[in-house]
Design a protein around this nucleic acid. Structure first.
Lengths: 148, 148
DNA sequence: CCGATTTCAGTTAAACTGAGATAA
DNA sequence: CTTATCTCAGTTGAACTGAAATCG
């Protein structure tokens, strides 16, 4: 939300919220032509990065309940982008992995998101980008320590 | 969402989303004892900063539809934190302002959020904070230019 | 008549809680 | 017996679209 467009007058929390909102929308626009929502893209990209997670593990990483994640995964499975396979060790646990189609679609998404991030970072130098990432990581860690 | 905790391996979009999610939750915890949600606090603080906005103007600033904002405002009005007064120029437009109670509650919220932001920024120097704010503002502007 | 605002009504996506069945 | 997982079911909050009435 935007009480003003002056950098200094705005609370940092606002600025973060506005950025996230704008970024989510932009990602949504970027992946919509490939039939995905922002949340679906995010989920696919986590599963691709860390295959063989269970639904419960994935939910913990995404900070949502298993039921919420399950609903998301059901949709992705229905669309043929993701598969769940019974664990050999534990027949109740379902390991997640992308289908070939899922990999193909995600690859095309990642290319678009790469472009989007490049556009977002236009005019910000590499050294500054590193400082930015570190600051964001530190703020997140600080918040978890104090309240979460 | 957290594919990894390494700063460099994480996509910046993830990092921003995680920070926003964590921050929203922390704000929610901070203002809950005063009977507000994160969205209510945000709305009140915009109205306080820019009084006499109409519902439609406020909605545009918050990037939501007038109907969505109206629902939020109705709740705040019902709780006695906010009032709507007919414009002298245009009897259909309702100007927004906080009630005395709204001001009191918001004041106590702001104090808590001030503390929260201080904790969030712990270990980040003033010069770095300024660079951070500027980078966030620039990224938001860049995204709007490229996608909407 | 036109454009903007407010508001009633229904819908959707994505989280939540609760409860139940099953496996290690 | 305990604990974790998956899943069915219902609920909630906050966005959305559609449509109507009113004012300048």
């Amino acid at each position: 939300m935007a009480p003003s467009d002056e950098t200094s007058a705005m609370r940092l929390s606002y600025a973060v919220g506005r950025l996230d909102h704008t970024l989510s929308q932009a990602i949504g626009q970027a992946v919509a032509p490939l039939g995905l929502t922002t949340a679906q893209y995010t989920t696919l990209s986590i599963v691709a990065a860390q295959p063989s997670l269970s639904n419960a593990q994935l939910a913990r990483r995404a900070f949502v309940r298993p039921q919420s994640m399950n609903q998301m995964l059901s949709g992705l499975e229905r669309d043929g982008l993701l598969r769940r396979a019974q664990s050999p060790q534990h027949s109740r646990i379902l390991h997640l992995d992308l289908s070939a189609e899922g990999r193909r679609v995600l690859g095309r998404c990642e290319a678009r998101i790469e472009e989007l991030e490049a556009a977002m970072l236009d005019g910000i130098e590499p050294k500054e980008r590193r400082r930015l990432s570190e600051a964001i990581a530190r703020m997140t860690a600080n918040l978890r320590e104090v309240s979460g």
